[in-house]
Design a protein around this nucleic acid. Structure first.
Lengths: 171, 171
DNA sequence: ACCTGAACACCGTTCAAGT
DNA sequence: ACCTGAACACCGTTCAAGT
């Protein structure tokens, strides 16, 4: 009833990103956290990118789930609520977010269909309009990545920016 | 009449990013391109971050200049023209763009006022409305970084998305 | 003032060898 | 089937030594 090693590796990788940030995702550190030597990881994973892809997959799935849950809560302004929930979740996992959106997706290492499935939430909420969906996705991503990079002044009213972008009144 | 070494370093760094991408920005490669050993760079620069900051500074200034030039051309839709010119320029220098916007700005190593001066173009074009300026900036950044990361399907009509975001009709 | 080679602590990855 | 230590080619950076 023990988890397969690949899943243990993914778990440890996710935790190391939470605690140590991006440098935590090294073969040697993951191995050390598992009480094993670095080369032995290669029995369960063909290279470091496999591990990056595992993290990217989890990030895509969790992010979509966060939005879906927020939409289901049916608040006064569900779109804004979903955007805000997604923002809060991304800020809580900066290293994972950056690893997933700040560099190319390792598509060939991802379970097929996973990317489309994660994108579905946004497209559905945009009523099937792909242009609107892509614009909403890009706007949220831009705001999050700039906030993560500390790119806005400390006194910037980012809530107001998010409301302007995603609030009911914005359309 | 030779350039100071720091400027030579910045020039070489910029070129290496154009030709080799992000891995090109290594102390050893910059040194080799200058025909010198890596340790000797430390006579002109205190650490690698100094070089990153030099590139970030150039990126901020050039990006702002690109927008300003496009706005001055006074086309039918100057806002859209400026956004498109900025997009085209960013896609032509992906490594520099990522180095400047994909990670924290090294503010303490940047000439004071440079960041604000570069941001001014957008704020001016937004008529001084900071919320709108930040939203436009984030939207453009989000679209560019997702496009650079190959995140949109090949058949995505990105021009239409940019028009929806920045076209005259969008307001 | 400017440069050098050797060295240190890190990477990802390979490989022969052990159980 | 799974793990090991040693090694290789890379990093950024330090330092004693040379001109």
């Amino acid at each position: 009833m023990v988890k397969p090693r690949v899943e243990q590796i993914a778990d440890v990788a996710w935790e190391l990103l939470d605690t140590e940030g991006e440098p935590g995702l090294s073969m040697r550190r993951i191995a050390a956290a598992l009480g094993v030597s670095a080369p032995s990881l290669y029995k369960h994973v063909t290279c470091r990118d496999d591990i990056v892809a595992l993290v990217q997959g989890r990030t895509l799935i969790e992010g979509a789930a966060v939005m879906r849950r927020a939409l289901r809560r049916r608040s006064a302004d569900p779109g804004l609520a979903a955007a805000m929930a997604y923002r809060r979740w991304a800020l809580a996992h900066p290293a994972q977010y950056t690893l997933t959106y700040g560099q190319p997706l390792l598509r060939h290492l991802l379970p097929p269909g996973l990317e489309d499935q994660a994108a579905m939430v946004v497209v559905e909420h945009a009523g099937g309009d792909e242009i609107t969906a892509r614009l909403m996705f890009a706007t949220a991503h831009g705001l999050i990545s700039l906030e993560l990079a500390g790119r806005f002044p400390d006194d910037a009213n980012l809530d107001a920016v998010w409301r302007a972008a995603f609030g009911r009144a914005a359309h």
